[in-house]
Design a protein around this nucleic acid. Structure first.
Length: 994
RNA sequence: GGGCCUAUAGCUCAGUUGGCUAGAGCGCGCCCCUGAUAAGGGCGAGGUCACAGGUUCAAGUCCUGUUAGGCCCA
C-alpha cells in the first residue's frame, strides 16, 4: 500500500429512494457450480432424448455429414481426446444450430495389439494363461479373444461416460465398434473389392518386426525412442587385391614400386552388428569420391569426405591417402565376408543363386552423412537393402527367426543366439580377427514397438500387402496416383499446409502391409492348400464376410473351412484359377487350412466411411464433409481411409480434412505422461464448460500449451461472460416478452426503435456479431468465435451498452417506454447470445436460455440445444438498423473518456456523474441523437453539443444539485414536495410532480 | 538424417498480396464506482517481431542459414 493518508469515505448519502429503483434481481447464480450442475444438465438432455429429438427435427433439414475417427478403446480419455472431441463437438453443435441435420455416430477402434497385450499380461499375472496355453491354436485364440472383447466393451463404456461428461453430443446409445459383426462384414466387403481390383498380394518383405510380440508392425505401431547401440566400422577384405589397386589407378608396377603388399579392405559402418551375418553386398554411391588409404599399416577404402571424421574418431595415428577414385570404379569388385565362408543360402532354398553375393554395388541412397560411404547391405534386414538386392539379384536372406534368434544357416558360433546378444559377440569376433577398425557405443533414435517398448528389427516374412503402385482393374491408375490426384485437387485441407504434408507422405509411402500374426482382430480370410497354394479371391472374402456379418469374427476361429465357406460357390467365382478349382473339386474344402493372419487395425479404421457412414447414415453419408483429427493422422487414419475408399469406390471418403496439433507442456515441450491432472481431475476442478471454453480459445493448428494456470485463466474469462449474461437476466426480472408488436420468436419491434438510439446500435452490433460468429464457425475458426463472443460480452455489452443503460433500467419508471425498449433489446440479445454460445458452453448456454424463457426446472422438454441460431435460414437475426454515424460516435466516446480522465487529474473531478461533457458536433454529426443517450454512453450527468469544438471538454458540475435518486446532475434537479432533491425524470418515477 | 509446421509484449495470440507510430485479451500499475459487489468501469506502462545474413526505396511479412520446439518418417 502507498503511505498516503487513508481518507475515510464520507458515509453514503441516505438512500431513501433505494426502494423505488428497479434494481437487478435474479436467481441465476453468480457462481456457476459447474461441477455439480453439469451432470444434471447431462441427465436432463438424456431424459429428453436430445440426440433423437434433433434427428427428428433434422428430418427435413439439409444434412451436414460428419464422421468420428475412432479412438482406441483403452484407458481413460486424456487431454488429446478432450481437444479432439471438443473440436468435433463444436462442429456438430454449430452446424446443428445453423440449421443442418448433423448426425454424429461416435466410434471405437476395438481390435489390435494394445488390448491383446494388456489382456494377455493380465492373464499371465492371474496365472490363467497356463490353461489357455495348453489349448490348440483356434481354442487358444478364441479364449484370448473373448477376454479382449470383454475388456474392449468395458473401455468403450468408460470412455463414452467421460465423453458424455464432456457434454459432447453424439449417438452414445448406438456407437459404431470395429469389433461389431456388421462392421466386420463391411470391412471384409471393402477388402473383397480391393482383392477384386488386384491390389492385394502376398510377398516376402522386410517388415518392422516386434520380437517381443512376434508380429509384424505397421508404421503407426512404432514409436521412436533413444537407444544405445554399438556403432562399428568393419573392414571387409577384397578378394582380388590387384583389381582394387587397379580401380584406384595403381598398376602392378606402381604397386611394387610403392611396396603395397597388403590386400585392401572395404570399410563399412553399421549400428546393427547382428545383421552382419546376413550381409550380402556393399553399396557405394557412384558420384562420390573414395580414397584408398593406409591407416596404421592397413590399406582400406572409404569415402574421401568421411576419411578425416572416421580416422579421427578412431584416433588413427598414421593416415596416408594412396589414391582416389569415383564410386563407379569400385562397383563390381568382390570381397570376402569377415566370418562367413561361403555366401549362405536362405533356409529351404537350396537352389538360391548366390553368385552375385559379396560384391560392391551401386545405390543412390548412400550418403555422406554418417559412416564410411560404403553401406553394409543385408536384403533380409532393411528396406533399402531389400530393394538393392531385388535390383541386383541377391537372395532374400534372413537368418533371424521370429523369436529373434539365428537359424542354422549362420556360422556355428552364432546359431540359436539372440541377436541382441550377438552384437557384442560379433564385435568381439571382428576385433580378434582384425576386421574391426573401430567401435563405440552411441545414442540414437531407434524405432520401438509402441506397446512393448522394445526395439523393433527389420526382418523378412511372408505378409499380405496392398500394393500402392499396382494399377487398379477399374481405373488403370494406381492407388498412389489416385491418392495424389485427390490430395492435389479433390480434398480441402484445414490448415492448407496439410495438403503438402499429405502429398509428401503419399509420394513416399511403401506398400501397405495389412497382415498381423495375432488373435484379437479380423481374420484375413485366406485359405491354403496342402501344397502351399492360396485361395483368397474376392468371392471368398465376400463369402466369409457374409458369414462374419451374421456371426462375428469369432466364427473364423470356431469353424472349419467347409463351414466358413458355406456362402462360397466355387463355380460362381470368376477369379479362381482353373487348376485350383479342379483340385478343390476333387478334394473338397476339407483339405484347406485357414490362414493365420489378422488384419491390420488401420485397415478396419480406414473402412469406417463404409462400416459406419455408408451403413449407418446411408449412401449419401459418403463422401463425408469433414474428417477432423490430429496431424499425426495424415499418415494414419486419413491415409488409410483415403486409400481404401479410392480402391473401393474410386473417390475420396472426405471432402475436407481438418487437423489439429498436439498438447505440449508450458515450456513448449512434449507433455510427459505422468505430469499434470487427469481429465477426471479437470472436470472436478473446473467443469466441462470451462474446459471447453479453453479448448475453444486455442489456435489448434499448431502445438498448444497446457498448464493448470491456463485453465484458471479460462475460468476467469468464463466468469466474465457468465456475469454479463447474469446481469442481463437480472434486468429482465420484471419483463415479459410477447407484448403487442412482437413478431416471431423474439419481441423487438424495430420499427419503434430510432436508428439513432443506443438500443438500435446494440441490436445492430448483435446482428454483426452473429454474422461474424457463424462465419467463424463455418470456417472452423473456433478461436475467432471465442474471441468475438468474449469481446462482445466485455466490450460491446459490459463496458458500453450495459453501462449506458443502467440508469434507465434502474431509475426510469418500471414501464417507461424507453426502459421497455432497452429490456426488449436485452431480452433479444440474451436469447441470441445463449444460442451463439451453445456450441461452446452447452451447460451455461442452456442454463441461461432456460432462465430467460422462465422454463420450469422440472420441465425437461425445452432446451437451447433444440433451437437454431436466430439468423438460421434468413439474413440477419434482427432487422436492426443503426445510424451509420455510430462508428464515429464510438470514436468520439474514446476521446470523451480521455477528457474525463484528464479532468480527473487536472480538476480533481473523480466521479463521472460530477461531470458533464461538451461534445464537438461538426457537420451535424450528433444531430438527431438523444443527448441523454450520449451522456449515459460516457457515464456523465449531461452532454452539451458544440458545433465549433474540436474535442470533448469536461464540464465541472460539482456545484450543481445532485439527484438523490439517480445521483445525476442533469440540470433539472430541484427540491420536491417530499423533501428530496430529484430530477424531473426521477420525480416522475416516484410520483412527485411538484 | 529427411518431409511438414512453429517462434511477435511477462502469458495466449492477431498482423491480408512486403507499405502509417507493430495490435488485442489476460496479467501488471494507477484511479473511479459501491445500485452487476467473491462484481462493474476508466486510464496507463510493457515489444531489437528467436538469431545471423541476403533481396528491396521499404521486411514482423520474401529468400538462405543457425538455434529451439512439435508431428510424421528413416
Amino acid at each position: 500500500m502507498s503511505n498516503a493518508p487513508v481518507q475515510k469515505k464520507s458515509a453514503k448519502p441516505e438512500n431513501k429512494y433505494r426502494g423505488t429503483l428497479n434494481l437487478p434481481k435474479t436467481s441465476f447464480p453468480m457462481k456457476a457450480n459447474l461441477v455439480q450442475n453439469e451432470p444434471n444438465s447431462v441427465k436432463r438432455w438424456k431424459k429428453m432424448k436430445l440426440y433423437e429429438r434433433l434427428r427428428e427435427l433434422g428430418k427435413d433439414r439439409p444434412r451436414f455429414t460428419f464422421h468420428d475417427g475412432p479412438p482406441y478403446a483403452n484407458g481413460s480419455i486424456h487431454l488429446g481426446h478432450v481437444l479432439n472431441k471438443t473440436l468435433k463437438d463444436l462442429v456438430v453443435r454449430s452446424r446443428t444450430m445453423m440449421g443442418f441435420d448433423t448426425p454424429f455416430v461416435p466410434g471405437w477402434d476395438c481390435h489390435g495389439l494394445p488390448i491383446e497385450h494388456r489382456v494377455v499380461s493380465d492373464l499371465v499375472e492371474s496365472g490363467k494363461i497356463e490353461k489357455i496355453k495348453s489349448l490348440d491354436d483356434d481354442a487358444r485364440k478364441s479364449a484370448i479373444r473373448s477376454e479382449c472383447k470383454r475388456y474392449a466393451q468395458k473401455q468403450v463404456k468408460l470412455q463414452a461416460g467421460e465423453l458424455e461428461r464432456l457434454m459432447t453430443l453424439a449417438d452414445y446409445d448406438a456407437p459404431y465398434l470395429t469389433m461389431a459383426p456388421p462392421f466386420e462384414g463391411a470391412v471384409l466387403d471393402a477388402l473383397a473389392t480391393l482383392v477384386e481390383q488386384g491390389l492385394v498380394f502376398r510377398a516376402l518383405k522386410p517388415v518392422h518386426w516386434s520380437i517381443a510380440n512376434e508380429t509384424a508392425l505397421a508404421e503407426a505401431e512404432l514409436e521412436y525412442q533413444d537407444r544405445e547401440d554399438l556403432s562399428v566400422y568393419v573392414d571387409f577384405e577384397a578378394v582380388d587385391a590387384a583389381a582394387v589397386y587397379a580401380a584406384f589407378g595403381i598398376d602392378e608396377a606402381a604397386r611394387t614400386d610403392r611396396d603395397l603388399g597388403q590386400t585392401p579392405s572395404f570399410m563399412i559402418w553399421t549400428t546393427t552388428p547382428w545383421t552382419l551375418p546376413a550381409n550380402l553386398a556393399i553399396a557405394v554411391n557412384t558420384r562420390f569420391e573414395y580414397s584408398l588409404v593406409q591407416v596404421d599399416g592397413n590399406v582400406t577404402v572409404l569415402a574421401s569426405e568421411l576419411l578425416e571424421k572416421v580416422t579421427k574418431a578412431a584416433k588413427a595415428e598414421q593416415v596416408e591417402v594412396l589414391a582416389t577414385a569415383k564410386g563407379s570404379a569400385l562397383a563390381g569388385l568382390h570381397y570376402r565376408h569377415p566370418f562367413v565362408e561361403a555366401a549362405p543360402k536362405p533356409l529351404g532354398e537350396p537352389d538360391a543363386d548366390t553368385s552375385t553375393c559379396y560384391t560392391v554395388v551401386e545405390a543412390e541412397y548412400v550418403t555422406l552423412e554418417d559412416g564410411t560411404g560404403l553401406v553394409h547391405t543385408a536384403p533380409g534386414h532393411g528396406a533399402d537393402d531389400f530393394q538393392t538386392g531385388d535390383r541386383v539379384g541377391l537372395p532374400v536372406y534372413c537368418p533371424v527367426r521370429h523369436d529373434g534368434t539365428y537359424d542354422e544357416t549362420v556360422p556355428e558360433w552364432l546359431r540359436g543366439l539372440d541377436i541382441w546378444d550377438a552384437n557384442e559377440q560379433i564385435t568381439d569376433r571382428l576385433r580378434s580377427s582384425g576386421h574391426l577398425f573401430y567401435s563405440h557405443r552411441f545414442m540414437h533414435s531407434y524405432p520401438h514397438d509402441w506397446r512393448s517398448k522394445t526395439p523393433v528389427i527389420f526382418r523378412c516374412t511372408e505378409q499380405w500387402f496392398i500394393g500402392v503402385d499396382v494399377p487398379l482393374e477399374r481405373a488403370g491408375k494406381s492407388l498412389r496416383d489416385l491418392a495424389l490426384d485427390a490430395v492435389a485437387t479433390g480434398v480441402g485441407f484445414v490448415p492448407e499446409w496439410g495438403r503438402n504434408r499429405m502429398r509428401g507422405m503419399v509420394e513416399t509411402r511403401p506398400d501397405w502391409c495389412i497382415s498381423r500374426q495375432r488373435s484379437w482382430g479380423l481374420p484375413i480370410p485366406a485359405f491354403f492348400l496342402p501344397d502351399g497354394q492360396t485361395l483368397m479371391t474376392a468371392a471368398v472374402v465376400r463369402a466369409v464376410g457374409t458369414l462374419i456379418r451374421e456371426q462375428g469374427s469369432d466364427a473364423w476361429f470356431k469353424g472349419t473351412p467347409e463351414e466358413l465357406l458355406v456362402h462360397y460357390d466355387m463355380d460362381d467365382d470368376p477369379d479362381i484359377e482353373d487348376g485350383l478349382r479342379t483340385s478343390l473339386r476333387g478334394s473338397g474344402f476339407a483339405v484347406l487350412t485357414k490362414g493365420p493372419d489378422i488384419l491390420d487395425v488401420w485397415f478396419e479404421s480406414g473402412s469406417t466411411w463404409n462400416g459406419c457412414m455408408r451403413e449407418r447414415i446411408g449412401d449419401d453419408g459418403v463422401p463425408v464433409e469433414l474428417y477432423l483429427e490430429g496431424s499425426d493422422q495424415h499418415r494414419g487414419w486419413f491415409q488409410s481411409s483415403l486409400l481404401i475408399s479410392l480402391g473401393v469406390t474410386g473417390k475420396p471418403p472426405f471432402r475436407a480434412v481438418l487437423t489439429h496439433g498436439f498438447m505440449v507442456g508450458k515450456d513448449g515441450k512434449k507433455l510427459s505422461k505422468s505430469a499434470g491432472h487427469t481429465v477426471g481431475d479437470l472436470f472436478k476442478l473446473y467443469g466441462a464448460d470451462v474446459i471447453r471454453w479453453w479448448v475453444c480459445s486455442l489456435s489448434y493448428e499448431n502445438d498448444m500449451k497446457v498448464d493448470d494456470e491456463f485453465f484458471k485463466l479460462a475460468g476467469e474469462s468464463y466468469r466474465k461472460v457468465r456475469n454479463t449474461l447474469r446481469f442481463m437476466l437480472s434486468n429482465l426480472a420484471d419483463f415479459t416478452p410477447g407484448t403487442p408488436g412482437c413478431d416471431d420468436g423474439h419481441c423487438v419491434s424495430t420499427a419503434d426503435m430510432p436508428a439513432t438510439s443506443i438500443d438500435s446500435w446494440a441490436l445492430a452490433a448483435y446482428d454483426a456479431l452473429e454474422k461474424d460468429v457463424i462465419g467463424a464457425y463455418e470456417r472452423y475458426d473456433f478461436r475467432a468465435a471465442h474471441s468475438l463472443l468474449y469481446d462482445f460480452c466485455n466490450d460491446t455489452l459490459s463496458s458500453v451498452y450495459l453501462a449506458a443503460v443502467k440508469d434507465r433500467l434502474y431509475c426510469d419508471k418500471i414501464d417507461a417506454p424507453r426502459r421497455r425498449r432497452t429490456q426488449t433489446v436485452l431480452w433479444d440479445i440474451t436469447d441470441g447470445l445463449s444460442r451463439l454460445l451453445a456450441p461452446i458452453l452447452p451447460h451455461t448456454a442452456d442454463e441461461t436460455w432456460r432462465a430467460l424463457h422462465r422454463v420450469d426446472p422440472k420441465d425437461i422438454e425445452r432446451s437451447v440445444h433444440t433451437e437454431t441460431f436466430l439468423s438460421a435460414g434468413r439474413d440477419r437475426a434482427f432487422d436492426a438498423t443503426a445510424d451509420e454515424r455510430w462508428a464515429k460516435i464510438m470514436q468520439l466516446r474514446d476521446a470523451g473518456l480521455l477528457a474525463l480522465e484528464k479532468g480527473k487529474s487536472e480538476l480533481g473531478v473523480e466521479n463521472p456523474l460530477d461531470a458533464g461533457l461538451t461534445l464537438p458536433n461538426p457537420d451535424g454529426l450528433l444531430d438527431g441523437f438523444d443527448v441523454l443517450d450520449l451522456a449515459d454512453l460516457h457515464g456523465v450527468s449531461r452532454v452539451e453539443l458544440d458545433a465549433t469544438a474540436a474535442a470533448p471538454v469536461l464540464i465541472d458540475l460539482r456545484n450543481e444539485p445532485r439527484c438523490d435518486r439517480s445521483w445525476k446532475r442533469d440540470g433539472t434537479v430541484k427540491a420536491r414536495a417530499d423533501g428530496g432533491m430529484l430530477s424531473d425524470r426521477d420525480a416522475d418515477a416516484v410520483g412527485q410532480t411538484a
